[in-house]
Design a protein around this nucleic acid. Structure first.
Length: 889
DNA sequence: GCTTCCCGCCACGGT
DNA sequence: ACCGTGGCGGGAAGC
């Protein structure tokens, strides 16, 4: 994977990087593409030697060049000129000077993106990627010191762990949600109280300080979560007193996680984080802290967890960051599954959800923090264990934990949360360009994904089906209520053995937002996941269980999680430890509290009511930017659901109308952002008498890309619809789709149409098997809800529709070994984002995915592979996008 | 003029 | 003494 350092003096080969964009480098004479890296030299050596040898000048250039390369790859056209620097070599320094990377180009955020781009978001558990700091530093053309900054932050989130001197192990995002969850819990303990009450910033500031002292006694110095490797002897080393950056990073993240508004200003954060918070914060100290926070924020931004915003207060505009990562972490949902095998969870859930969905979710209990949390070790250990022992039982364990009640409550909560979120989002959307709406529409295709720049874009993710699906069903709908077994099974194809527990329960699809419409017979199924959103949603295989219930997905921003699907085996296992914990997360949605209280009313979620004004005032989001790919989108999706469909539609339309995006632009964006994940949404129509067994799904919204495409296409008839056995639906999360297709975008992808149609395979599944019939291939590109089936699962193959729906995922079966021994279905997301707009890209893949039936899935692998490529590309695209989007910030 | 944050000095701790 | 780490803050780019 690692790109090798280009040979010095060699004309720079822009293309080298994966994402190479040929267009960009006109000059490079060198063979563009994958040149096999010049091997002999390790990247490091090259650089080192050259650099050291070179005159300062040269050195400088070299560095710059290095920097650029990655950038180029990642960025699209951002730096139009950058290309030229190639020339520089031979020609003139001047040129180089011109080209000389600006400060921005050398920013830590960008560097981090480059760094992340080198590794898959969701590496297969089997592959252990080790990171050599020296090598990376040389490759990226920066000093090692900078790499430390990045790595420390990544380490705080467990994306990497230190293995040895100069060596880190890349874990990817498999554990991210777990980590965040833990941080959230820890944060709640520490800061939670604060959050409960509303404070003004000032208050918060104080309180935080005080609180902190109280609550955080021990943890101060120690990382909240100590992910350091226990096994490694290095424990001591790890313990190195400080690592303040790591600690700070964790605390910083915690603040977001406990914040109602998910917005934290640097000032407040700095104050809070300042070590014991002296009352009198030393100014210089404060200043230093803020600097550090910028460093951390840059990395987190690169990870797609936060984005920069501004909070306007009386005093003025203050820099702040908004959490755009996953908010809800699926808790061991598996538990849910495990419960009442006999009873039908769904119905209850539905009802509960429906009923409560208006009420705030209160069901959750606060969990107690795990002891392990602080110590972290357990987690780490667990994680490791998992890695080493794929088959570990942990899942089972988790499964037990949750009660059905909990499940119900969770679901309810989720529903409530979603609703709230939606509302909030709605309010915000006006402000936020990011809002899902737009994305949903398609108009902004590009928008969403930016969030998650999944830098490393995983090649593909494996998703354990079980997790994926979270059926929120309405009570009303009969069709949904499936026998538990069925539903559950469907959802959990992947984990046969352990799955038992899992099977029982409905799973949530993290990615998808679910909404229930109270009464209607119509349901929206949303599939989109944004990649932006955090990858974390993905439940690692191990995580599966945990997550399911909580399903972050539904939750707000993250609702659309990106590749949630992936998961695989991973290490997430450690998470298990906290089975019980439920998150308060849900609660968050309810209250608008924010650490930082934006003065502006609008900002608060409440603002929702007044969409336009609110947002703008308080938070200055980069609203208009089409490109923003902010993660927000997902949220948006959620919000709408609450409203009646029509309303939603209207909203959407209105949103959509946000006309800012001219199609062309979009395209442009899309290109960059291509990946934008859209959430595919489908309208579910209750079966009428005759067809009781089948459900029809109509795609509610178009692929984002669609819009752009629309022109070409005829709106046509092509109504994509899918007929599915009700049972099959059970496995899907119901979404209330926030986004309705708006007329505009709605044109189902005409372009697509041709193909789609046919592709359904009725698979072997026979009656149970869900059949998708599409008149047109509409599904949004990403969306395709492909039912993934676990081939292996003997018993209920049909059911395995899985959650995949959200994206067009291809289902691939992984080796059990990989996935903790359970058969796992790999879902590969098509990169929604990647595909974006261009019709061409979109089509096929999605199409395919969409229609896949379990039976068809048969050759998932192949499929996966194909997609894999796409994915990669997409990822790169995303990165680019992100970069572009974020950088400007 | 303020915000953002790059850069690299330098110290700490281990070997 | 050397090296890996990483705290820290000067000062400049960017706005």
């Amino acid at each position: 994977m690692a790109p090798k350092t280009p040979i010095k003096n060699e004309p720079i080969d822009l293309s080298k990087q994966k994402g190479c964009t040929p267009e960009r480098n006109p000059i490079t004479p060198v063979k563009i593409i994958d040149r096999p890296q010049p091997d002999p030299w390790t990247p490091t050596t090259n650089l080192k030697i050259l650099v050291s040898a070179a005159s300062p000048d040269m050195r400088d250039r070299e560095k710059k060049k290095e920097l650029f390369r990655p950038i180029e790859n990642s960025e699209q056209s951002d730096t139009p000129d950058s290309l030229q620097y190639d020339i520089v070599d031979d020609s003139t320094v001047d040129e180089f000077e011109k080209q000389r990377p600006s400060r921005k180009q050398k920013s830590l955020g960008l560097l981090c993106q480059k760094f992340l781009a080198r590794y898959p978001n969701y590496p297969l558990s089997t592959e252990k990627t080790t990171i050599s700091l020296d090598e990376v530093a040389s490759i990226l053309g920066v000093e090692r010191r900078r790499i430390y900054d990045i790595v420390n932050v990544l380490e705080s989130l467990q994306l990497v762990s230190r293995v040895a001197k100069n060596q880190y192990c890349w874990h990817g995002r498999h554990n991210l949600s777990q980590t965040l969850k833990m941080l959230q819990e820890a944060g709640e303990l520490q800061y939670g109280e604060l959050m409960t009450s509303q404070f003004k910033e000032q208050d918060l500031e104080y309180k935080f300080g005080e609180r902190k002292k109280e609550t955080i006694p021990d943890s101060q110095d120690r990382p909240l979560l100590d992910f350091s490797e226990p096994d490694c002897t290095s424990a001591s080393a790890n313990s190195r007193k400080d690592k303040s950056l790591r600690i700070m990073s964790q605390k910083f993240v915690m603040l977001f996680l406990v914040s109602k508004t998910k917005i934290v200003t640097l000032d407040v954060a700095a104050k809070i984080l300042i070590e014991e918070t002296q009352d009198t914060v030393d100014h210089s100290k404060f200043k230093t802290k803020v600097r550090r926070l910028y460093d951390i924020a840059n990395v987190l931004t690169s990870l797609g967890l936060i984005k920069k915003v501004h909070v306007t207060e009386e005093r003025g505009r203050k820099p702040a960051f908004k959490w755009i990562g996953p908010v809800e972490f699926p808790e061991r949902t598996d538990e849910l599954r495990g419960h009442s095998p006999t009873s039908d969870p769904l119905p209850e859930t539905q009802r509960g959800a429906c009923a409560q969905y208006q009420t705030s979710a209160t069901g959750n209990q606060r969990f107690t923090r795990h002891a392990s949390f602080n110590s972290a070790q357990p987690c780490e250990a667990a994680r490791r264990k998992v890695n080493s022992e794929p088959n570990s039982p942990r899942q089972e364990r988790q499964a037990c934990i949750v009660n059905s009640d909990e499940n119900c409550s969770k679901m309810i909560n989720l529903a409530a949360v979603c609703r709230q979120k939606i509302e909030e989002d709605t309010g915000n959307k006006a402000c936020d360009t990011e809002t899902i709406l737009s994305s949903a529409k398609n108009s902004n295709i590009s928008l969403p994904f930016s969030l998650l720049p999944v830098p490393g874009d995983s090649d593909f993710c494996v998703n354990p089906l079980p997790q994926a699906v979270f059926p929120m069903v309405q009570a009303d709908v009969p069709s949904f209520s499936l026998p538990n077994g069925i539903s559950s099974q469907a959802s959990h194809p992947s984990t046969p053995a352990a799955s038992k527990t899992e099977n029982g329960k409905p799973t949530l699809v993290p990615n998808q937002p679910f909404l229930c419409f109270p009464s209607s017979s119509l349901f929206m199924l949303c599939g989109g996941l944004q990649e932006n959103n955090l990858s974390e949603p993905l439940p690692a295989a191990g995580d599966l269980g945990n997550r399911s219930a909580e399903a972050q997905a539904p939750v707000p921003p993250t609702a659309c999680q990106k590749r949630s699907s992936h998961k695989c085996s991973s290490p997430s296992a450690p998470v298990d430890e906290e089975p019980a914990a439920k998150k308060q997360v849900l609660e968050h949605s309810d209250l608008p509290l924010s650490l930082v209280v934006p003065k502006k009313p609008s900002e608060s979620p409440k603002a929702e009511s007044s969409p336009g004004s609110g947002c703008s005032a308080a938070v200055h989001l980069e609203i208009n930017r089409p490109d923003l790919a902010s993660p927000a989108a997902p949220e948006v999706a959620n919000k709408e659901p609450t409203k009646p469909l029509d309303c939603q539609e209207k909203e959407k339309q209105s949103q959509n109308k946000d006309p800012d995006e001219p199609p062309p632009e979009n395209e442009h964006i899309s290109k960059e952002n291509g990946n934008q994940p859209f959430q595919p949404q489908y309208l579910y129509v209750q079966p009428t008498a005759g067809l009781s067994s089948f459900n029809f799904l109509f795609s509610a919204n178009q692929a984002p890309g669609a819009i752009s495409l629309a022109a070409n296409q005829l709106p046509s008839l092509s109504v994509p619809c899918v007929m599915v056995p009700s049972a099959a639906l059970a496995s899907f999360p119901l979404v209330c789709s926030p986004s309705f297709s708006n007329p505009l975008s709605s044109v189902p992808d005409g372009s697509f149409s041709a193909a789609a149609s046919t592709n359904f395979s009725v698979s072997s599944l026979a009656s149970t098997t869900p059949v998708f019939i599409s008149t047109t291939g509409v599904v949004t590109p990403k969306v395709s809800p492909a039912p993934s089936v676990d081939p292996q699962q003997p018993a209920h193959p049909a059911l395995h529709l899985s959650p995949v729906l959200t994206r067009s995922c291809s289902a691939v079966k992984l080796d059990s070994s990989v996935c903790m021994g359970h058969p796992v279905t790999l879902l590969k997301l098509q990169q929604p984002s990647s595909a974006p707009l261009t019709p061409k890209s979109i089509r096929p893949a999605h199409h395919e995915a969409f229609f896949k039936t379990p039976g068809s899935l048969g050759d998932p692998v192949a499929w996966k592979k194909n997609e894999g490529n796409q994915t990669r590309n997409a990822s790169s695209v995303q990165r680019r996008l992100e970069i572009s989007s974020t950088s400007p910030d």
